[in-house]
Design a binder for these strands. Structure first.
Lengths: 146, 146
DNA sequence: CTCATTGCAAAGGATTTGCACTAAT
DNA sequence: ATTAGTGCAAATCCTTTGCAATGAG
């Protein structure tokens, strides 16, 4: 039950900002980093409860806000009506494939998209800060099953 | 105050599906098509009230759902916490630039992105149905003002 | 000790739903 | 006449906030 890479980095971040390192904060960070699938606030709450370390809803949201602000976690929105969170890990900018049948998410990187989006923004007078691409479709498993 | 292109098409859609053509439905369609800026449900409600043709919130949402299902209107989400709607008009698939300072939205088309997203999906075993790209940045006007 | 965090419960904003009433066909 | 739509208000869902009790530094 040693700290994950994310919770270690979060600990450092909190210290550097003179913010208390609490077990709740570390627990939330650990759950986010332990999930392969992008977690929603509700899923994080359930995982913590299931592990006997229940954390209040407000604290979960407040911690997620901190994690996002620290740059350690990315906030995602796949149009489901709520947000999902994923560790920023070593993937600085990446895109998502979302299976509209089972909700599976596949990530991938593509340098061309990064460059292209910057150029597209500039050609319309914008200074690009980031972009978000989600491709919707049906994954191989679901296509086979149908 | 004759029907817009959108409300005319909506009328046809409703007839073809044996759904009643009501003044509320046409009014919502007209407001959506009359706005250059993508409208939120709330903005549509205000516009209708301001025009002396107030429509109940529930009806607005139910009508927007119909318009989306008909393919005449597209639902958009710029991460503001609510959805926006825009007439599908003659722009089949297009991308968005979102100014993080003033909220302005600029639309543009790019065939390469369409083709690229299909290929990217296929290379990961997905059958693409659609994609959504939003580039976040600062528009020329806001950059100048800062 | 002092000040920030926690958790609960209440508040909020967007969207949905139940239901008596009204209108379209 | 039938059948579906409308509007209101209550209900839901996700997220935020107020505040007394608690814990970190």
């Amino acid at each position: 039950m040693d700290g994950s890479a994310l919770s270690d980095a979060f600990r450092v971040y909190l210290r550097n900002h003179n913010l208390p390192v609490t077990p709740q904060r570390l627990a939330v960070a650990e759950v986010v980093s332990s999930r392969e699938r992008h977690a929603s606030a509700d899923e994080i709450a359930r995982a913590l409860s299931a592990g006997g370390r229940a954390v209040g809803t407000a604290t979960i949201y407040r911690t997620l806000e901190l994690l996002v602000r620290s740059g350690l976690v990315m906030e995602r929105d796949f149009g489901e009506g709520f947000k999902r969170y994923e560790s920023a890990r070593g993937m600085p900018q990446h895109e998502h494939l979302f299976c509209t049948t089972c909700g599976a998410v596949v990530e991938f990187e593509d340098d061309r998209l990064d460059r292209m989006s910057t150029l597209l923004a500039e050609s319309h007078g914008f200074t690009r800060s980031s972009h978000r691409l989600v491709i919707y479709g049906v994954c191989a498993a679901c296509r086979r099953a149908s």
